[in-house]
Design a binder for these strands. Sequence first.
DNA 1: ATACATACC
DNA 2: GACTGGTATGTAT
Length: 429
Amino acid sequence: NFQYMEEKNIKMALNDNKAGMEGLDRDKINKIIMESSKGSKFYENEVKREQQVNQRIDKMMLQKEQITEQHLKKAQAQVARMVVELEKRRDLTRVIVHVDMDAFYAAVEMRDCPELKDKPMAVGSMSMLSTSNYHARKYGVRAAMPGFIAKKLCPNLVIVPTNFDKYRAVSSEIREIFADYDPNFMPMSLDEAYLDFTEHLEKRQSWPDSLRTHHYRASSNPKGIAPNMMLAKVCSDKNKPNGQYRLPSTREAVMEFVCNLPVRKVSGIGKVSEKLLNALGISSCSHLGQKMALLSLLFSETAWHHFLQVSLGLGSAFIPRHEERKSMSTERTFKEMSAAEEQLSLCRELCEDLANDLKKEGLKGKTVTLKLKNVNFEVKTRALTLSYPVATADEIFAVAKDLLKTERDNESPQPLRLRLMGNQIKQFN
DNA sequence: ATACATACC
DNA sequence: GACTGGTATGTAT
């Protein structure tokens, strides 16, 4: 087990899987991050989670030991059959674009306050940053880093509070432009979207400049252009901060691109999957292809099917139409709260907020879920499904307060020492 | 159906 | 001193 426990493997370390983070003093940065985190409840919890992942790896390695040549051969045949099927359906006829405004929130703030352009700045608070500009990234300051640690890395860092209404406004301008190119484009967040350019290109024969030179200049917008969504997403990351990258629509180009692609770059393969794969000697997508038989024996069907598609450079060649929402939730973090009455009134407040949001979309749901995080960062969810859909604050609270009471009773005589509470509702009609 | 984990922005 | 919030989906029971 110890082999996984070196500091550099613990999750705290600088995540440099992001544009603008090349060639900085990683050791120094990691040392500062580590010193700011060590001993905190947050850190302790991260270590615990890390150990759970390591146990998963140990279990997987034991399973691997049990696999015989016979098993592998059979699996290999199955994989080969599947590859034939997938190749038959490979579609290189579409042109999918992934657009991603670079450092979006920071870019909007710099547009509105040009002095910030020459300074390292980030958007967020001392508790959490949501993005940083490129000056700040040189110091290792990045999204999802708490501001107080960022300040240690870069004492001159300017932290601008988040201004969502502003970002939403800019976002809707940008979306109007997207709609000109593909009325069915798929927004992934305020600053990111997939577009199907196929039709547009058939009509106009040329690449639009306006996506680059539109009056909104505060933010550059890298594009990834490829025959499917999976590849377009990876491509958009390629020439950040300013460029675009087009992957030709040929099987050879796709396979060559995918060959050297680190698995972590693929959307859907995060930190944990990367670590599991690394333990099997897999770091690039070509390794993924080479070890498919093994993967099919160690992972779930959904997981290995996904891996197989990635290894072949396959992804969705059309942009699925926007799905109905499946859940809605509100959660809040706060200073330690242990008093029952206080927790109850907060719960009530959250239910009211949630009911408000539900009303805006005219939704009612049958499953109510209460989420609790204690001061040790341990998260619990407790759910109850009703036979009828609910929407009002009173109805939701009636369920949530019982879930909360049950939890408190289970812990008593110890109180629930909370740092976060949340309510979720799902199972809409 | 429920709980928890992973992933994305 | 301070380590988010919202949504979807996978995995396990």
